Simulated scan of single mutants.
Amino acid sequence: MLINILNDEKFVDLMQRHVEELMLYLFEHDQSFGILCKIEHLSFEPELPEHITESFRPMTLFYLAGYTFDSARIDGNRLIFEAGFGPENIGSFVTVPLPSIMQIIIDETPIFINHAVYKEGEEETEAADDGGIENSMAAFLSNPENEKFLKKK
């Protein structure tokens, strides 16, 4: 099922490698780009004042251009770049785990979309804990009309 694939650690690793290779390609070709990422997984050094962080949405777009692009680098499984925030242009190093990057955007067009489910620590999914996936599959299989959707071995 789709949810099993999206939660699979190997699929998350595949998406991470893909996003890394794509960003390296963009860096090599000096192409500015935006990243849409889950703010909950990011870290800022130094930490930003609350009046700035409270304006971030759960999915936030960062555009890497100019100095921000020049400061960007991939370190292990993280993208790190320096950016200025707020009217005061407060500088901070932003650390983004690669699997938390949901889109890469050039000229307002997504060129990469990540559907993998990234969780820090890779804990088990709730659906697996309560048997939801098994119950859903049992309901699906109980209808004989759904046999046509099953992969033949």
Rank of each mutant, 00 (worst) to 15 (best):
M59A: 08
L61K: 09
I101D: 00
Y67C: 08
A72I: 06
L24F: 14
E147H: 09
K148P: 07
S55Y: 01
Q16A: 01
F44Q: 06
K119L: 00
L24E: 06
E54I: 15
N143S: 09
I113M: 01
S32R: 01
T60N: 08
P110W: 00
A65G: 11
L48M: 11
G121V: 00
I106V: 15
T53Q: 04
E47F: 11
E123C: 00
F27P: 06
K119Q: 13
M1Y: 13
F149P: 02
I80L: 10
E88C: 05
D30E: 08
L26D: 05
H51N: 03
F27T: 02
E126R: 12
F81Y: 05
E108S: 08
E40P: 06
L6Y: 08
L141G: 07
R73S: 02
E45N: 09
T109Y: 03
G34W: 00
V94L: 10
S142H: 10
E108C: 12
G34I: 14
G86E: 02
Y67Q: 15
I133Q: 02
E21W: 14
H41A: 01
A139G: 08
Y63M: 14
K152Q: 05
I74F: 10
I111K: 03
L61R: 07
E9C: 13
L24K: 09
E124Y: 12
T68P: 06
P99C: 00
P97V: 04
I52S: 01
S43W: 03
D70S: 13
E9F: 15
F11L: 07
Y118E: 05
N135H: 07
N143L: 06
L6W: 08
N146G: 07
Q31C: 15
K10M: 11
E126Y: 14
S100L: 04
I105Q: 01
A139M: 11
L141I: 13
E20K: 11
E120W: 07
P144A: 03
I106T: 07
Q103T: 15
L141S: 12
S32A: 09
F81D: 05
K119N: 10
P87D: 12
I74N: 04
P49Y: 12
T95V: 07
M23I: 09
E40F: 03
H18F: 09
A72R: 06
F140D: 03
G34V: 13
F93V: 02
N7Q: 15
E145I: 04
E120V: 00
S71G: 02
L79G: 02
E40W: 08
G84S: 09
V96T: 03
F62L: 11
G132L: 13
E108L: 12
I101E: 00
M59Y: 11
S32E: 10
M137L: 15
E82Q: 15
T95P: 05
F33D: 01
L64R: 01
H41I: 01
R73Q: 07
